[in-house]
Simulated scan of single mutants.
Amino acid sequence: MHYIDINTYTRKWIFTHASMPVPAEDLAQIQPLTQARSATLWREFISSQSPDSDHFGKGDWAAEDKNWTETVEWQAAWDDDEPALPEALADFLDWEDNTPVYFCYEKYNLIETTWAVFKRNWKNFLFFDDGPLLIARKKTQAVWFHSNGTCKIGHRNA
């Protein structure tokens, strides 16, 4: 079993908060991974040495400026009443709606969902904006969100 029940997930409130509840059909597709599975995917796709984005260093693809092509502002769209992703992100991430994506908070805390579910509920995921990364297993595009309201977009090592 690679998933934990959303009802036992410590950050469940970000998806059920009264000001921005995720619809039940989407909530069913937001799957927090076990710590063991999270750590495995983190090592495979993010870093074999750093436990979170604050500690990226030599050897981590995310720490290399050459992998990031642009910095995009996301905070204004998050504060806006419209649910849409910032246009620059939507244009850059031209994934199919059924593409499995991973929202990576840190080594032991990853969430799997689909691109369609993430797009509809991206604001919920960013209640915690302290350096999470958004990736898809078979895609190289990556987004690294920062708490200053910006994110880097680029390509990870496949």
Rank of each mutant, 00 (worst) to 15 (best):
P132Y: 01
L33R: 07
Q49D: 15
M20C: 09
A158H: 12
K152M: 09
P23L: 04
D79P: 00
K107N: 12
F103M: 06
A136Y: 07
S50D: 03
L85S: 11
I135V: 15
D129Q: 06
A39K: 11
F127C: 10
P100L: 02
G59W: 01
E106W: 04
S19Y: 04
A84N: 13
P21S: 05
L27G: 11
M20D: 15
A158F: 08
E44V: 00
H17W: 04
W68E: 12
I135E: 08
A62F: 07
T113C: 11
D91L: 04
Y3H: 13
T71V: 12
S47K: 03
P51K: 01
D80L: 00
V117R: 00
Q29I: 00
K123C: 06
A84F: 06
R137G: 10
S47A: 08
N67Y: 12
F56G: 10
Q31W: 02
A39C: 07
E82N: 13
L27P: 14
K66M: 07
K119Y: 02
Q35A: 13
R43M: 05
W68R: 05
M1C: 05
D94P: 08
N148P: 09
E25V: 09
D91I: 02
Y108D: 15
H17K: 11
P32E: 07
T16C: 01
C104M: 03
T34G: 11
F145L: 06
T150A: 04
F56E: 11
K119G: 01
I111P: 14
S47T: 11
H146G: 06
E44T: 14
D91S: 11
R156S: 09
L126Y: 10
L41H: 11
L110A: 02
L85Q: 10
T8R: 09
D54F: 11
K66A: 15
N67S: 12
W78H: 14
K66D: 15
N148M: 01
V143R: 02
D52W: 00
P32L: 02
G154P: 13
T69A: 06
W122F: 08
I30R: 03
Q49C: 06
E96P: 14
Y102L: 15
I14Y: 02
Q29K: 13
T69D: 09
E106L: 04
R120W: 06
N124P: 01
W61K: 05
I30D: 02
D80R: 02
T16E: 14
D91Q: 13
A142S: 13
A136F: 07
Y108W: 01
K58R: 10
I6Y: 01
P86T: 05
L85F: 01
I30L: 05
K107V: 09
P100M: 02
P23K: 03
F145P: 14
S38H: 08
L41C: 07
D54T: 08
K123Q: 14
I46N: 10
D52R: 03
N148T: 13
A116P: 10
A158Y: 09
F15H: 05
Y108F: 04
A142R: 03
D60Q: 07
A116C: 03
A39W: 00
C104D: 10
W74P: 14
F103V: 07
Y9E: 10
L85T: 11
V117S: 05
Y3C: 05
Q35S: 12
W13F: 09
A158E: 13
A136V: 09
N109A: 10
S53D: 08
S48I: 04
I135S: 07
Q35T: 12
Y9F: 15
H55I: 00
